[in-house]
């Protein structure tokens, strides 16, 4: 189960999307997320769907990989869908016990599910096609201007990339510790909430101890390899825009214009 989370995992392939500059992908993801919340018209979603499918196709990432990441948010989706379904006021079409379902509620619910799924798809595509180092490089360079107001962009980027690298390691470790405690008769499945929370202590304490030990080791290894912040640092793969990146920016521009046009035109309407 723990290994099912694909967020933050890189899928190796050679595709146009993989080769794009991470800054393009970051901006693209941002625009994509914003566009998801710019209205509830069918046409808007049709456009978003087409764009998303095109990007997924271009990325050569099997759909299976993207949907696998979805499993971890199923509960979140169900809860927010339920909230939208039952708590939206409007034209009542169904009443059962204390629950009422309205036409608006159904619309809201469907859109919420689509939004969440698209949100995960969009961000997964970015993390699946961009190596964490590349991603942090993109953040570092893309947010370079923040450096002038003393935001430690390089440090934050480095922290992110390390966090991403250690996610799979710590997950494996969690699995191992869990099994080890189960072998000592620990029971994580039965009992009430308090008992279950308490049962997590034998996992969390060793996990924290191990995370600190690893952090300590890693800091030492980085220091030993002359790490001293961003000062005077060069790059093996410095970010440089190529013509495909310019084209991608143009495509993004077109997409943004279309999205804005539709959302203004279709304001407050579904169809």
């Amino acid at each position: 189960m723990l290994r099912d989370i694909t967020l933050g995992q890189y899928y190796r392939a050679n595709s146009l999307i993989h080769r794009l500059d991470p800054r393009v992908k970051l901006l693209g993801t941002l625009i994509f997320i914003i566009s998801l919340f710019l209205g509830q018209s069918i046409w808007l979603y049709a456009l978003i769907t087409v764009a998303l499918i095109a990007v997924i196709k271009l990325s050569k990432v099997p759909l299976k990989y993207i949907t696998k990441g979805m499993k971890s948010i199923v509960i979140l989706v169900i809860i927010s869908a339920a909230f939208n379904l039952f708590l939206t006021d409007g034209e009542v079409i169904f009443r059962f016990w204390k629950l009422t379902i309205t036409r608006e509620g159904i619309y809201q619910c469907v859109f919420m599910i689509i939004r969440l799924i698209y949100l995960i798809c969009g961000t997964s595509i970015m993390t699946l096609t961009t190596t964490p180092t590349n991603l942090t490089d993109g953040i570092e360079k893309g947010l370079d201007f923040l450096n002038k107001i003393k935001v430690p962009v390089h440090e934050v980027a480095m922290m992110m990339s390390i966090a991403l690298r250690f996610i799979p390691i710590l997950m494996e470790e969690t699995d191992k510790i869990m099994k080890a405690q189960m072998a000592r008769g620990a029971d994580f499945e039965s009992g009430n909430l308090v008992k279950r929370a308490k049962a997590l202590i034998p996992i969390l304490v060793p996990l924290f101890v191990s995370a600190f030990r690893r952090a300590n080791d890693l800091a030492m290894a980085m220091e030993a390899r002359c790490y001293h912040g961003s000062e005077g640092r060069t790059k093996m793969k410095p970010l440089k825009y190529k013509s495909r990146d310019h084209k991608a920016y143009i495509a993004l521009g077109v997409y943004s214009v279309l999205v804005i046009a539709i959302s203004i035109f279709m304001k407050g309407r579904f169809i």
């Binding site: 890189y10 190596t131 964490p132 180092t133 990339s161 390390i162 991403l164 690298r165 390691i169 030990r213 690893r214 080791d217 890693l218 290894a221 980085m222 390899r225 002359c226 790490y227 001293h228 005077g232 640092r233 060069t234 790059k235 093996m236 793969k237 410095p238």
Partner: peptide
């Protein structure tokens, strides 16, 4: 511990970490 001293997520980037810190040209 091999796991605790690898910083990069791709082999070649990992190997480049030291030279990058030293300011070696690309």
């Amino acid at each position: 511990n091999p796991d605790n001293q690898i910083i990069g997520t791709v082999v070649e980037e990992e190997v480049a970490f030291g030279p990058e810190n030293m300011g070696v040209p690309t």
